[in-house]
Design a protein around this nucleic acid. Structure first.
Lengths: 356, 356
DNA sequence: AGCTTACAATAAAACGTTTCACCAGAGTTT
DNA sequence: AAACTCTGGTGAAACGTTTTATTGTAAGCT
């Protein structure tokens, strides 16, 4: 019976007995409309449950309060938190977000980027799958892009990341200082820039300790098997340092399956601090990243770019905190207790950061 | 110098020396266009990096391959996983997704729903904040809605959820069978339907064991304090059963802080199985929800509705698996070992489910 | 009273697409 | 050869908005 179609501005105008232009003016808060007419329009809007059609509105006004967000994997708690913060901030500034995940696949990322372009976003925030991101950015795309967390091979992008090198170095120095003589460093892939930076940070920081690197890939059964083989071989390294969340999960589980216990058989530390790392006994020494602040900085930067601020690409490094816990006690089976070294607040480094 | 404006279909037409209608026909795979013209158009498209404007396309064609997704909290791994699966499925069917989170706030959910409406989605998948969802659904909204995970107070919606009652009951029966005489059940709030169903499932399943319920709210410092007080009071309950993810995290941490150990001081079980629950020692007995399948079912159902299938609202319950681990051994300090009761695959219940 | 100003409201154009009706020309049937 | 039917292509209308230019009316000046 009833015209079951979502109401348009025309229906509102009809019902209020005014022109569509007037309705539009009321809805957009133009001051040139009388109180009486405004009331009539608002009544009609309420009665019909009218909501503007964003597509049409955007098309005509050419003002697109919309930004695209691309992350490698939504199920990674780090990225989920990143997106969630971003969403909140965007809302405060009255922007909409289109979020997509690339499922850790470069090709899918390229595909998603092309698709997101169809939305005509005013800007983009991307955590790229790998360094070759620049090649995947579609041609003919003129909106500002802010990269986060991972560094692209090509220069020319705004970037917000953490001080991977120094933070990983701090863990390495800690292990070194606790008296460990050799440390195995495990990470998904050195082709991911922050893993690479962390590994380099480790190498730069160690004094006496011997370090070796093991790449196990991302979702790679083969890599998992290599890890297990190494953990079964003797002698074991004195300490294990895992460079990213996925790797930590895999490593910790593998150790448990094999029957290795932390810290009796080997010490263990992780880049990326997750909630459960305080729940296991002993707690796991970890680098905590200021993920919310990363989102805040990324948003602030993109907002500046979208509102016309030109200028050279900016790189910002945020400082990580190190949480020392029971998984890395003094080396020769001597109990060191739960020294809390963290607690200092995040702080933006003012100096430009140069990893080399 | 160069017209730095994102290319439109008109520019493509010009460049290819054809009409815009022809470009549109080529892009939409209409068969009535000669190979020669198609090539010219495709060349122009590639050279300009043209991508269709979704807003305009949708506006004209009125075919909106778009669905909105609303979840209470993106940082909850369950929901993140739900969204991620959904995103994948949508892509396969060539739909776009607009995802928003309500941050556990009913008012914000209402706001987000209104906003999402402006996108003119063809359908909605919602995990509602609470039972009063129906009141927040904007008027004049005619797209199909599929609810997931939580049951609304009002009838009339399609719903995909898990068998909260029986699953929680299975845990309760297990504790009962292990010889515990009293069990404290902790949950965020009985106003959330699945928490309520789980609690009712517990009460229905216990035979000899005495159970008491403690609500601690969601992000409620007051509730956390009540929990701590209870855990310091003696006598302790023999077992603790936590009914949702957030509560489990809080409870487990609180126990550790107070110095209570599982299972020596009390047994512990959780609804919602998280990765770390296998990593702590002993592992935590938990109900594992088929979250991916929930997403699959929700998507399949919505797709059917969007393609015109009418009919009465459907309710589906998916079966959970129970993972028995070391945190719930035989009662009087007797080691029960790590019996693995799970492993059966998820299975859709064919019978309509009635909680009463 | 005339003549300008100021204001409130509107008609119509425009945004980038898709779709519909139409057209020219070539082939096919009488 | 006239009358059809295809075939591949196009101009123009339409989608739901916002914006610009225009109109009509009332008030403020001489």
């Amino acid at each position: 019976m009833s015209k079951s179609r979502t109401p348009s501005i025309k229906m509102v105008a009809e019902r209020a007995g005014v022109s569509v232009a007037t309705v539009s003016n009321v809805l957009n808060g133009k001051p040139t409309v009388s109180a009486d007419f405004a009331r009539r329009v608002n009544d009609a809007v309420r009665e019909l449950g009218y909501v503007v059609d964003l597509g049409a509105s955007r098309l005509r006004s050419r003002k697109t309060q919309l930004v695209g967000v691309v992350v490698p994997d939504l199920t990674n708690p780090m990225f989920a938190s990143f997106v969630s913060t971003l969403e909140h901030l965007a809302r405060l500034d009255d922007y909409d977000l289109v979020v997509v995940s690339a499922r850790n696949d470069a090709e899918e990322e390229a595909d998603r980027l092309r698709k997101i372009r169809a939305w005509r976003p005013a800007g983009l925030i991307v955590i790229p799958c790998d360094g070759a991101f620049a090649e995947r950015l579609p041609t003919g795309f003129f909106a500002p892009v802010v990269l986060a967390d991972r560094i692209p091979d090509a220069a020319g992008f705004d970037l917000i990341a953490v001080d991977n090198g120094p933070a990983a170095g701090a863990i390495a120095a800690h292990l070194d200082g606790q008296g460990y003589r050799d440390c195995m460093v495990v990470g998904s892939s050195l082709s991911i820039s922050n893993v690479r930076e962390r590994w380099e940070g480790v190498r730069a920081a160690v004094k006496r300790m011997h370090v070796e690197m093991l790449e196990i890939g991302i979702d790679d059964a083969n890599g998992a098997q290599r890890l297990e083989e190494r953990l079964r071989r003797r002698p074991l390294p004195g300490a294990l340092f895992s460079l990213d969340h996925g790797t930590t999960l895999l490593t910790y589980r593998t150790m448990a399956e094999i029957g290795l216990s932390v810290p009796e058989d080997l010490a263990f530390a992780s880049f990326d601090d997750m909630e459960w790392m305080q729940l296991v006994a002993p707690g796991i020494t970890a680098v905590r990243q200021p993920i919310e602040e990363m989102a805040e900085q990324a948003w602030a930067l993109l907002l500046r770019r979208m509102t016309g601020s030109a200028g050279k690409p900016v790189t910002r490094r945020l400082r990580c905190a190190v949480e020392i816990r029971g998984s890395t006690p003094r080396s020769p089976l001597e109990e060191a207790g739960n020294v809390k070294l963290g607690g200092k607040k995040w702080k933006l480094q003012d100096e430009p950061y140069s990893p080399e």
